[in-house]
Nucleic acid binder design. Structure first.
Lengths: 242, 242
DNA sequence: AATGCTTATTTGTCCATACATAATAAATTA
DNA sequence: TAATTTATTATGTATGGACAAATAAGCATT
């Protein structure tokens, strides 16, 4: 076993086990489709009880990262890159969770004047400059998403922040701005020249377009985000119950 | 206690407990904001062990229906669920709400053998025929969505029903099948020949693809639905709060 | 070759118990 | 009165054990 669990650590064993499994999955050990050792075995290997191990596995099963099947075992399922509507994680955190290594292809920060729609959404005057961030991200084999984000000046971002940190963490910890409501619109469209270039696809190829309006606790606008996802490499998932 | 748990039932106790809690929450007993009795108490009231009860509570916490807090207890948080309820309208109802008049272009019902994936999802043998419904709908100026639906034979649909009625109403009233959980996957793709024909668009034009798995109250599969939406004429919206 | 039966393996369910930890309330002290 | 300490009470963590249920795979039968 490459990693092990520290029984003296203050971090709960089941949390350690969960993280350990995530590591094993994202690294070479247990790729997509592989089955984990059986629970009794694995518990012995990690030197924790089966109940504790199940606690860890349960979380990953809930997330859909693992699939249990009686008699055949528990297998890894991180094939499709997906985004759950309900969890409030940043892109990188989410990908990390799914065991996918993210590569940053471009990161660009500028100050621009808002267009009418944007000025409207932010409720600011059109002569007030706002921070625009563009980034292209993907996996080792190429980019699969092109993001454009605009941030409300109220937040106080300077543009010199370390944008390699998870964004919502940065906003929360350094700027006391908590994103707590998001409205999204998802549609399909064709790639124009710019998008095709950024995503390294043909012009007129299909793209999943995700528009996102983010608000803080007082329902004040804080971010306007556009995401262009390469088709077939991104699936948006929603679960709803009545 | 209004309801109780049947220890002789083949239904696992934690599942019964989960359903019981759901009932109590949805009815007047424990409305939004109220705290449940503490775990030790509640376990005693339901005559199950605390671990088993926790199993039930965990699921609801994961869903966001309950929020745990040390020392203060576990409280109900079903404020956000209601906002999602509009996801649970039928297509025609939803369009009506937006003031869009819907025209039906095609409606087709056949019996087919399931492919492997479908047989798997429905948990049936591949030689069991299932009901397949295809329909093309849109506005006066042309079609904008091509649906393919498969229904589980358990429901008892004959294929002679009046499918112009709202579907979920039909299932509920005539077949006592209540759709209560849906998992959706949304992605972008290009139109193949069939889809292009149905939607009256060019081959390779972009399409929003929405795959939908629908389950009843016992989380048994009841419908598998594929929807191909003409790009630019359909936007999927999601609102989420944390 | 197809069918049915048996067995072994793996997850699923359930319990009782013990102690840890965090947050609040109550009591104590400055 | 205000600050500090202590106790209380809820969830959180962790274990070990027992048996149930499902099913893949091998075996036997037709």
């Amino acid at each position: 076993m490459k990693y092990s669990i520290n029984h003296k650590s203050p971090i709960p064993l089941h949390v350690q086990a969960e993280e350990l499994l995530r590591k094993l999955i994202s690294e070479e050990e247990y790729q997509n489709g592989k089955v984990l050792p059986n629970e009794v075995e694995l518990a012995k290997m990690l030197a924790i009880s089966r109940s504790t191990l199940r606690q860890a596995i349960n979380k990953l099963v809930f997330e859909g990262l693992l699939i249990r099947k009686k008699r055949s075992g528990t297998k890894v399922n991180n094939s499709t890159i997906s985004s759950k509507s309900n969890n409030w994680l940043s892109f990188s955190q989410e990908m990390q969770l799914r065991g996918i290594a993210i590569k940053n292809f471009e990161l660009h920060v500028t100050w621009v004047y808002p267009d009418e729609q944007l000025a409207n959404f932010f409720e600011i005057k059109p002569d007030r400059k706002i921070l625009k961030m563009e980034r292209v991200r993907g996996q080792a084999d190429g980019p699969f998403v092109y993001f454009i984000s605009y941030f409300h000046p109220r937040i106080g971002l300077t543009g010199d922040e370390d944008f390699k940190r998870p964004l919502y963490e940065l906003l929360e910890q350094d700027y006391f701005t908590i994103a707590s409501l998001s409205k999204e619109e998802i549609s399909a469209m064709t790639a124009d020249k710019l998008i095709a270039e950024k995503l390294n696809i043909d012009v007129a190829a299909p793209v999943l377009f995700r528009k996102r309006f983010v608000f803080d606790q007082g329902e004040r606008p804080i971010e306007y985000n556009l995401g262009y996802y390469k088709a077939e490499s991104f699936v948006y998932t929603v679960e709803s119950r009545r």
